[in-house]
Computed example of a mutant assay.
Amino acid sequence: MMKNDVVSVSQKNVFVQSQGNIVSDMGGEKVMLSIHNGKYYNLGEIGGRIWELLAEPSEVAQIISLLMAEYDVEQQECEQEVITFIERLSKEGLIEFGEDHGHL
């Protein structure tokens, strides 16, 4: 989890999926079981898409840009929803704060 638990578009925060989660597609929505905390999560359609994007280290701004290109959504609404979702995933220990190693 991040030091201050605050996610921002302007910061270059990079997140990636944590290990130990089993994810399945159920009727177009992603559902997940966390082996670490024994909880089930329904990520939904868009949450499932964010989860897919987090398979590789990703910045919040990158995720927002991709979602805006894929869905008919206003930027402010997309930013708020993505930030809230990422904060929840982080709080539950489902994603990790990390570094983007893709540019090496």
Rank of each mutant, 00 (worst) to 15 (best):
G38D: 11
H101S: 14
N37G: 02
E92H: 08
C78V: 04
L89Q: 02
E81W: 11
G28P: 06
A61H: 10
E77C: 01
F97D: 06
E56K: 15
H101D: 14
P57V: 11
S34W: 00
D100Q: 12
G48E: 07
V82R: 06
S90I: 00
E52A: 12
V82I: 09
V82Y: 04
R49V: 13
S90Q: 07
E52G: 02
H101C: 10
N37F: 01
L54A: 08
L94C: 04
S58W: 00
S24F: 13
Q76M: 10
K39M: 13
H101I: 14
E56A: 14
I64L: 06
G98K: 02
L66I: 13
L53S: 05
I35P: 00
F97C: 09
M32W: 00
G44C: 08
A55V: 02
V23A: 14
F85W: 13
K39A: 10
E29F: 04
E59N: 07
L54M: 11
I83W: 01
Q80V: 05
S65Q: 13
K30T: 03
M32G: 03
F85A: 03
K30P: 01
S34N: 07
G48Y: 05
L66Y: 08
L94V: 07
E87Y: 00
S65V: 11
G38A: 14
S90D: 07
V60S: 05
E70D: 15
L66E: 15
E56Y: 12
I35Y: 05
D100M: 13
D72G: 00
E74P: 00
G47K: 06
C78Q: 07
V23S: 15
D25M: 13
F85K: 06
G98W: 00
E99M: 12
E87F: 01
E81T: 11
E29H: 12
S34Q: 06
S34M: 02
Y40E: 09
S58C: 12
L66G: 10
N42I: 14
L54I: 09
E79K: 13
H101R: 12
A69C: 07
G44S: 09
I35V: 15
Q62C: 09
I64D: 04
Q76N: 11
N37P: 02
G93S: 05
N42K: 14
E29I: 10
Q75W: 01
G98D: 07
L94T: 04
Q80A: 15
R88W: 06
E59L: 12
I35T: 09
R49S: 10
A61W: 05
G44K: 03
G28W: 08
E99T: 15
I35N: 08
R49K: 15
G44E: 04
V31Q: 07
E99H: 12
N37M: 02
Q75Y: 09
I86D: 01
P57Q: 10
K30F: 09
N37Q: 06
V23K: 10
Y40H: 12
